Amino acid sequence: MAPNLLLLPFLLLILLSSATTTSSSPKKTLKEKLSHLHFYFHDVVSGRNATAVPVTKPAASSQPFSAFGVITIMDDLLTERPDPNSQPVGRAQGIYAGAAQDELGFLMAMNLAFTAGKYNGSVLSVLGRNPPLHPVREMPIVGGSGLFRFARGDALARTHWLDFTTGDAIVEYNVHVLHY
Rank of each mutant, 00 (worst) to 15 (best):
H38E: 12
P26W: 07
V126R: 03
H36K: 14
G69N: 03
S61E: 06
D43T: 02
P88I: 01
D76Q: 03
P54K: 13
T115G: 07
H36F: 15
G94Y: 00
D43K: 03
T29F: 10
Y119I: 09
H134Q: 15
Y119S: 08
D76C: 04
S25P: 02
E80T: 14
R129G: 02
A60W: 15
A60T: 13
E32Q: 15
A59M: 14
P82W: 06
L124Q: 01
P131G: 04
M74I: 08
I71T: 15
S122W: 04
P84K: 03
L37F: 09
L34K: 14
G128K: 07
P135Q: 10
Q87K: 13
P140G: 06
S46V: 02
A52E: 11
F114N: 08
L34C: 13
V70D: 03
S46Y: 02
V136N: 15
H42T: 04
Y119E: 12
Y119W: 15
P132M: 04
R129Y: 12
P135W: 01
N49P: 06
F41T: 03
P54F: 10
L37Y: 10
R48Q: 15
G47H: 01
M110Y: 07
P54A: 12
K33T: 12
T56F: 07
I95P: 00
S125P: 01
A92T: 01
Y96L: 09
P140C: 08
A116Q: 15
K118W: 12
P82S: 15
N85Y: 01
R48L: 14
S86E: 00
A60K: 14
P131Q: 05
S66P: 00
F106T: 05
R48N: 13
P135H: 07
R48D: 13
P82F: 07
A97L: 06
D102K: 08
L34E: 10
F106N: 09
M108C: 07
S86F: 00
M139W: 04
L112T: 06
L37G: 06
S61I: 07
S46L: 05
G47E: 08
E80D: 10
V55F: 13
L77V: 02
E103W: 02
A60H: 12
P54I: 14
F114Q: 09
M110V: 12
I73V: 13
G90D: 05
A67Q: 06
V55R: 08
S122K: 02
S25V: 11
I73H: 04
Y40K: 05
F41K: 04
T29A: 09
E138Q: 14
S35N: 12
P88M: 02
E80K: 15
V45R: 09
S62I: 11
H134G: 09
P84M: 00
A99Q: 06
V123R: 05
